[in-house]
Every structure is written in structure tokens, then in C-alpha cells.
Design a protein around this nucleic acid. Sequence first.
DNA 1: TCAAAAGTGTTGAGTCTACACCCATGT
DNA 2: ACATGGGTGTAGACTCAACACTTTTGA
Lengths: 283, 283
Amino acid sequence: MVEEYSTEEEFLKKYDYKSFERPSVTVDIAVFGVLGEEVDSYRKDEKKSISLLLVKRGEHPFKGKWALPGGFLTENDESVEKCAEREVFSETNVKPRSLFPIGTFSAKGRDPRGWIISNAFVSVVSEDGVNAKGGDDAAEARWFKGNFTAVEDSEGKMKKLYRLSMTSGDTTLCALFEKTGCHFGRDEFKVVDGGDFAFDHALIIATAFSILRSVAGDFDMLFDFLPERFTLTSLQKVQETILGETLLPANFRRKVEKLVVETDEYTSGAGHRPAKLFMKKVD
Amino acid sequence: MVEEYSTEEEFLKKYDYKSFERPSVTVDIAVFGVLGEEVDSYRKDEKKSISLLLVKRGEHPFKGKWALPGGFLTENDESVEKCAEREVFSETNVKPRSLFPIGTFSAKGRDPRGWIISNAFVSVVSEDGVNAKGGDDAAEARWFKGNFTAVEDSEGKMKKLYRLSMTSGDTTLCALFEKTGCHFGRDEFKVVDGGDFAFDHALIIATAFSILRSVAGDFDMLFDFLPERFTLTSLQKVQETILGETLLPANFRRKVEKLVVETDEYTSGAGHRPAKLFMKKVD
DNA sequence: TCAAAAGTGTTGAGTCTACACCCATGT
DNA sequence: ACATGGGTGTAGACTCAACACTTTTGA
């Protein structure tokens, strides 16, 4: 490689870029949705919660553990985004509304099979087209209700601990993290207890939750969780769910009114006053 | 691989994760600094400008073109961050203050040598310890004064065009982009004219500038451009340079006063009233 | 009738912007 | 003396959180 070549063409013919030691590359996607739960009274609206799609691994390593959907980058010249889109579709039968890169995870030892690095993404799917099912190599795919919050440390100690808790039916997965810093407005975490997640997926999930929350003010992203037509309250619920706090309806309406256009449609059959349906403003 | 293995151990022994087709992996870093330019009057302070480190390629492909510092991930089990840090140090002799992942670039055809994907980073170095010089395989390393702004389209056409212009001495590099969207608060660009940059580095640089600007309000990041002790005006200049707009000093001081602690040191010999030196508050 | 959500109006606290003004320095 | 940046004060504009209040529906 220190040899001299006179033309680029000649160089390329002799150059073997595969002759070096190199990692294998995977893609993992944190697919988020804001899904509804049934509720008691006919008057009340659905309670929403932030949900994340996980698949139970059908093969070694981590056979039987829960992991993010994803897979190897093996199709020649396929981009990581295309690969991520393909993997999400094969697990959910839904084309993701958006796909956002949240970093490459490449810490030593993250995969027992060897030197394998993962390009992680956050993806958002809308509540209407959601029907997860285990596809190809995944034994089972399920939506987990997720929660990622700072925990109060027992008096005195100043470590910033965060707990991830994910529930689906009778299955609950937990993990514990320490916040190690904040750069470029993005929190960084270290795993204290990886729980029962496969690979380093606990860390990827924590990062995904943190980044999702940090962009909770971006309404273009919030729209992706909803159908084309939606009520302002459902939009508010999405933001509240991601932020983990409630907002005052009057103030929320004023904030979003420049970002939406009203339609002439209304909801009905909800046990209370009908709500006007809105659409995202395209301008 | 569809065979059944009873234990994870047995599986790992037989599993050859390298048997699949896979890309080679590189790391490219947009190293930013806010550097001063000499000025005429003894009274005036240095004019600052946002600068980016580029290296002139000494080898094919793109021999003689300017590229971001970077290199292949070839050292077994090395993480992408470690690799990026090592590459920056070998080009600048400066440990980067911070390193922020801005995505993986993997579009088909981005590298003429074949299927090679790049993990891109933004890095910030402080103005005091900057002494760029061409290291190992790079023929020459130089700081380019950079500019990335929207251009007014000649009447009517609504395409959102952006121009990147980089200057170092008598060398000027230009490229043109179209903004294709905005997801998660991050602008996305398509190359209209890649100019004289190597590989797809025009696109990586545009993305880097855009992301840097989007986090210009994060003071922790701004501090990384400065020495440990600094004047409030120099901090203001850094933010102004990145934002591309001027701010009112009185308002700026009020905004940052909670984020810094004063020292008992002052500047001197500046041809005007001395300025108190401040430090980043750690809390 | 009434609980729940849809939707409007208002007030006061706090923040931000723009500008006016004085201070200290090296040549 | 004076241009230049360092630094403080303040009035008006603007934004936003909080709360009060009216409307409309399905059972």
C-alpha cells in the first residue's frame, strides 16, 4: 500500500480493501409507538403509553432473551438506512414513518460472537398501522410498555441513576444505568445492571429513550406517531407520554395551532363532546 | 445456521460470523475550532471564524483532493470512538475535547474502492492547543475557514439550496446542497454539486455544520472551543461564529452568568479595558 | 342529569430585546 | 484625547403558566 500508482484506475485494480482485519456490521432499531390501553368508563379516552418493539431471540447467542429487531448488513452495497427499514418491515409489516441514527455501538465484548458493531436507530410507527408479529428469524415479536426515569438514590449519594422498565403482559424486563455525562445536549449512560436484555441492547434502549425525550418538542416527530387525521388531545397525549409529564390543554392548543390545519371532520361516539380532526400543516 | 445447537457455547464455537458478505468500516471526523485572524488596529480584538481541519490525500483514490481526517477500523476490538480519537490526535497532536456521532454514511458508490461505510463524528478542539500538521499517511493538514449558509435562489424557485465554502490561504473549496427534509430536529441534505472534496465528504461536512449549528445553544459544547479561562466576550464570539449572527453583549452576559464562575484574573495589554476571566461552572 | 373531554378567555409572572449609559485601557 | 471593548441598568414587548369558565356529547 505504500507503493506508488500513477493513476487512480490502476490503484483501484490492485487495491484490496478487504485484506485488513475488520468488524462485521449490524443494524438495530428501537421502534417506538404510542399505543392505547383499554379503560373502564365509557366516558374516558384511551390511556396511552410509550411502547417499544422487542423480539425474543430464537437462536444463540442470547437464545430466549429479548432484543431489539435488527440484523447483519450482508446485502452488497445496501445502506444502513435501507437495511434498517427492511428489518423493521419484516418484524412489524409496517413501513417506519421515520428513522433516526442514534450512534454506533462498538464497545469491546458487546457481542460474544466476535468483533461486531451495531448501527442503532430510533424509528417511529403510527398507532393505526401496528400489527407486530414474529417474522423470519425472530421467534416472537411483542410491544413492551416502556418507562425510563431517574431514580431517587437512597439519601446522600449523588450518582445519577436511571431505571429502564419494560412490561408486556406478565413479562417485565429491568435495567439500571448511571448517567456519565452530557455532550451536545445528549445524555450519556453506563450500564450498571444490563438485566435480561440480549447483547448491549439495554444501553441502546436507554440511549433511544433519552434521545426520544430530548426531541419531544419536535412536532414533526410527534405527528409520526399518529394517523393522518388526529385530535389535538391525542397529539397532546403523545407529547405528554414521551415527556412523562402532563400539560395544560389550553396552553397546548395555542402552541400547536400554527403547526396544524383543521379539517371539517369530527370524532363521534366518545361519550363526550366531539373533537375536530386536524392534519399536519405542510407549508 | 438453521441447524440446532443445544448450548450457546457450542453454537459460538461453530459459528463463523465472518463468512457473510460485509462492508469495511471507516471513521471520519469533522474537527472544528474557532480560530482567530489577525486584525489591523491595536485596539481591536481578534476576529474569530469557524474552522475545520482537512487533509490533502496523499494516496489514491482522490489523490490530491481534500478530505476529512479519518481512517479504517482495523485494530481488533477497537471502538469507533477510540479510533476517531486516535485519528484526530495523529493529525492535530491534540486530544479532542469532545466527540459526537453524527451518523453512518453508507450510500452506494460513496467510495470507489468498494463497499465501505463511514462513521462520522463532530469533534471540538480548543483554540489554545491547536497545531495541525500532516501526520502519518496524510500529505498535508490545514485549517479551512468554513461557511455553510442558505443561498437565495434566483426568484421564484422554492428549492432550499445551501452553499458550503471553505478557504485556506489561496485554496477555496465549494459545494452545493439541497435541503431534503428535517427529522428529529436535524436537517437532511442531498448533494447538488460535491465540488472538489474527496469521497462523499462534502455531504458529511454539510451535515456536521448543520448539527453544530443546531446545538449552538449548548454551552457545555461552546466551552470546548475555549481555554480553561476565558472572557465572556470570547465565549460570545464563539456562539456568534457558530450561529452566524451577532448578539447584544448585555443580554449575552445575563444569559451565561449562571453557567460560569468568575476568577480574580484579568486580561491585559488589549488596548482597552481589561476583561475578567471566567471558568465553566461544574456544579 | 352528569362525567368527561372540547374549547375560549384572561391575568400576572417572568423572560427577552433593544437601547442608553458609564468605565478602563494603551497608544 | 479617543477608539474600543468591558460592564450595568432599565422600559416595553413578548411569552407562557395557571386558572376560570362555557360547550357538547352518550349513556
